[in-house]
Design a protein around this nucleic acid. Structure first.
Lengths: 295, 295
DNA sequence: TCCATCTGATACCCTGAAAGCATTGATCGT
DNA sequence: ACGATCAATGCTTTCAGGGTATCAGATGGA
């Protein structure tokens, strides 16, 4: 038994006429009759009640007809869908992003892609930049939004946005009255920043910002999660330098201020250069279109 | 493409080794390789990433694997189920019965059959005896419980029960005080009975009962439904002769009395002699087993 | 009642899809 | 560098399955 036999069966079940069913199958009646006989023999079931004048379905045949319709439908769907997956119109895309981008480019990117490729299941995975890099090379992620850390041999990169850092602090902090803050003001401040092992590009930008002025920042806490940093600032444990897009909606009690010569970081969309997932290319293209609008 | 190709694909997708997959398909490796290549060519989709050392699924292949598993499963199920339907273990059985039997043999018959053949969908259809006879010959019903009306050329018959008729009346009826009633007492009574066109066997039994004593019953109302007869008796419009099994649970206000030399009717299970539905035979067998216990 | 006609089953032949065997070519570990 | 492993390719052979011709049973009209 095979789907070809099921199609033979369906042709006869629908026409109830060997000649016309054979014609529909683009063959002559004798081999068609043989095929029907073969189907009944291999199944061991009489599917048609027939004489030289009439053809009718048996109850078993009627039941089989429903099942065949389903099987053939699913079969066609499977063959169609595999093409769609290969073309990137369908499938799955595991997309990683860092919290620092969650409020800026990620929502737009996800929304545009979901609209362009509604049959691709987007698996979102919020990670730290270092985790993202590891998962991209390991192939656990298909694409990710992260800070540009420069060296990336096997990765293709699309620049999405260039974000300046701002400083955040409690609104009762002594510096809260100052409009714009320059590094020298922060010489004595307690700074909260993600560790270099977690967000190398961000931490190195912060470090460079201070060291350019000959200052060694007083980093008192190094939480791995951006979320935690903001919470610690809110508790008055120090100040922090975070991307401008994260400064809105931090909750009450916190304010942000502009930094003189504020460090800026490139937010990029990355994917393995030799990705196997055909859904990625359209994702990168949408990244490029976002880049045009946001830069 | 065909299910055979899907099985080839699945063998390779599961083993990721051409030699072992070919072995599983009971063939040598070269033709197997060719089949895989053919599948990819006809689908126009690369399903495996392979070199002379490693075989791996592409994303499209991974997706196709899931679909193939479903399709092949449904395919096997369809082939298995058609055999079950042909053997009468699965399918549908349209079962008609008259209200006069709804309280006696029908519940037991249905219950026993549903237990013996849980995968056969029993379509119950309550009808008048005449409708049942018509539907049996027309093939609209597979089997039915009705009164034995004697002549039934193309039908097979199983005697299920022999029911005596009792007389029912309002409890405030003058005859209510009498313990056992003989026909002469009913000479002047208004009788309610189903018309001969609706329930020939029942009506003829009632008529014979009276005419044997030279009485012409005074039939004032001829409702087609048993339900209606009982309601009319309850309203005091007359008395009625009904099977003993219907005398329980008529509702308050009604009583039943034994009739002297009460007429008796055969309740039979019937099916077309040359039925196509394989589910019928077990149904008739269960009918026979009920017969043994109830007679 | 007989014949024309329709329809499914059978007989026979032939083609080509697909299997087997032998071999090649590429890759990896020693 | 060499052998082992494994997928791909070339060549031959076979049989599943298609085509044509024909038979056989049923139906309906003359």
């Amino acid at each position: 038994m095979d789907t070809r036999h099921m199609r033979f069966f369906m042709a006869l079940a629908e026409t109830l006429h060997f000649g016309r069913a054979a014609e529909r199958m683009n063959m002559s009646q004798p081999p068609f009759s043989r095929q029907i006989a073969m189907i009944e023999r291999t199944l061991g079931v009489k599917l048609f009640e027939r004489n030289s004048r009439n053809v009718a379905l048996t109850p078993a045949g009627k039941h089989f007809m429903e099942d065949c319709r389903n099987v053939l439908g699913q079969f066609e769907d499977a063959c169609r869908d595999v093409r769609l997956v290969a073309s990137g119109m369908k499938g799955e895309l595991r997309f990683g992003f860092m919290m620092h981008a969650a409020h800026s480019v990620v929502p737009e990117l996800v929304q545009l892609y979901a609209k362009a490729r509604p049959d691709v299941r987007l698996v979102l995975d919020e990670r730290t930049p270092t985790e993202i890099d590891e998962m991209l090379v390991a192939g656990t992620l298909d694409a990710a939004v992260t800070f540009d850390c420069g060296y990336a041999p096997h990765l293709q990169t699309v620049l999405l946005a260039r974000e300046r850092l701002r400083i955040i602090m409690r609104e009762d902090h002594p510096l809260a009255t100052v409009g714009q803050i320059y590094p020298e003001k922060l010489r004595e401040e307690k700074v909260i920043a993600a560790p270099a092992a977690t967000a190398p590009a961000l931490r190195s930008a912060i470090n460079s910002y201070f060291s350019a002025k000959g200052i060694v920042p007083h980093v008192v806490l190094e939480p791995r999660l951006q979320h935690t940093i903001i919470q610690l600032v809110a508790k008055g444990l120090g100040v922090a330098l975070i991307p401008v897009s994260l400064c809105t909606g931090m909750g009450t009690g916190l304010i942000s201020r502009t930094l003189t010569d504020a460090p800026q970081l490139d937010v990029v969309l990355r994917a393995p250069m030799t990705t196997k997932n055909p859904a990625v290319s359209a994702f990168m293209e949408i990244g490029k279109s976002i880049q045009r609008t946001s830069l």
